[in-house]
Design a protein around this nucleic acid. Structure first.
Lengths: 226, 226
DNA sequence: ACTTAGCAGATTGTCGACAATTATAATTTA
DNA sequence: TAAATTATAATTGTCGACAATCTGCTAAGT
């Protein structure tokens, strides 16, 4: 399991509840569009409303719920428009991350990333199509590049604010399936560009990579919706 | 005064306190880098710690404070690295906003924006160098384009999460001064590109516009720092 | 003299209860 | 019968107090 980049030791009740609700929403256990009842959730997770509200504030921050004053909170509803908006930003920012990573990543980090990618590739060949490892590997790849950008705000936006929502789309729309081997090739090409300190190329390749992923999801979404 | 785009009627004590603390931090009344004392602020604004903590959560969201569990919150410290990180993202996302605006803005909205720009230009010529109107006009321009993108997350990131921090840099580094008339010309060119539905050009022009602004600030920062 | 252990003070995290607002349902009226 | 209105119930926002944790200082030990 890959954990949140900004790690505030998860000892507080608020952190624990946040993690549990995040998972529940992403997994659809708390349905999209449903209303959030503070007393109910407080009972369910055995905490007072104070840490629960703290958790809700952070859930709003990563766009998993929407709150209106004096009226409560609702889990976000998934839509094709929302998905497109999300990917529009992701494409742009992950491209930027690549450009910055090509500039700021240490050689050591790049070598590490290469080693890890090969390792994931081997695991992948063994467990063909096992979606968990695939996703974990993919995530690790993207995370490392984003962190390699050394841009605090970029890291925060992509890994804290948009990540869980993307995960929610993937999980609830059943985005397992193939597009694995090609993704691996694309990953390798991107790393190569970063290793060559070719930020522009890495940017371009990453945009295409994300764009392909988006296309893949949109098609799957169309087949589903109608 | 231009108010936050997502307007949650500011009746709650939390909203009121949030607005006051935001202003105090941006203006430097609560110094950058200083520690936040919950009891002290609660007394100062005559509220309990509950709404104050709600406000602190939102201040963390717009990067004006940094919290560590069980250790309290500090006002962020300004740095050239932070400023650069901020502008790297702003450049990218405002460029994206232009591209999307060229695609999604209604003719009516574009016409409105043009009218408003001319009006601001007149006001500008009358009150030569009056920084408030200048900034208000500049802000209005950028806001309209960002909203024109019709991308919820983009709007949220730029107008809610990064705006106040940029404002803090501008205010505390004393970014008044000229670069006015040229900025107006750049604004006109960007609007023209959007009116022509030329997203790529609008993107390019906006990136240059933001980049020029960043350059301008960095120079002023260098002259100051040493 | 410097490091380390322990203690006092203050601060943050959490709790339960109350007040203000909103949503729901029953009731009345056109 | 349908719309408007009032009353009730539930939910959210806020408060003050208690418990857990951290910070800074004192004091003992090497």
């Amino acid at each position: 399991m890959i954990q949140s980049p900004v790690w505030r030791s998860p000892i507080t009740a608020s952190d624990r509840v946040l993690a549990e609700i995040q998972q529940a929403i992403v997994a659809g256990e708390i349905p999209a569009g449903s209303k959030i009842s503070e007393p109910e959730l407080a009972r369910r997770f055995a905490v007072s409303r104070a840490p629960l509200r703290e958790a809700l504030a952070r859930l709003e921050r990563c766009h998993l719920i929407e709150r209106t004053p004096n009226a409560g909170a609702r889990v976000v509803t998934l839509s094709t428009a929302g998905l497109r908006s999300l990917y529009e930003i992701r494409e742009e920012l992950e491209g930027l991350a690549c450009r910055l990573a090509a500039e700021h990543m240490a050689d050591e980090e790049i070598a590490d990333m290469r080693r890890l990618l090969d390792q994931h590739l081997q695991e992948q060949r063994v467990r063909e199509g096992e979606s968990y490892y695939q996703e974990a590997g993919d995530l690790d790849f993207h995370y490392r590049i984003i962190f390699g950008s050394k841009n605090q705000y970029l890291i925060n936006i992509l890994c804290d604010e948009l990540y869980y929502l993307m995960r929610m789309y993937r999980v609830q729309l059943g985005m397992n399936g193939p597009r694995v081997s090609r993704a691996f090739d694309e990953h390798k090409a991107i790393i190569q560009a970063i290793a060559n300190r070719d930020g522009e190329l890495a940017d371009l390749l990453m945009r295409r990579h994300v764009s392909a992923s988006r296309h893949h999801i949109e098609i799957q979404l169309q087949q589903m919706g109608k």
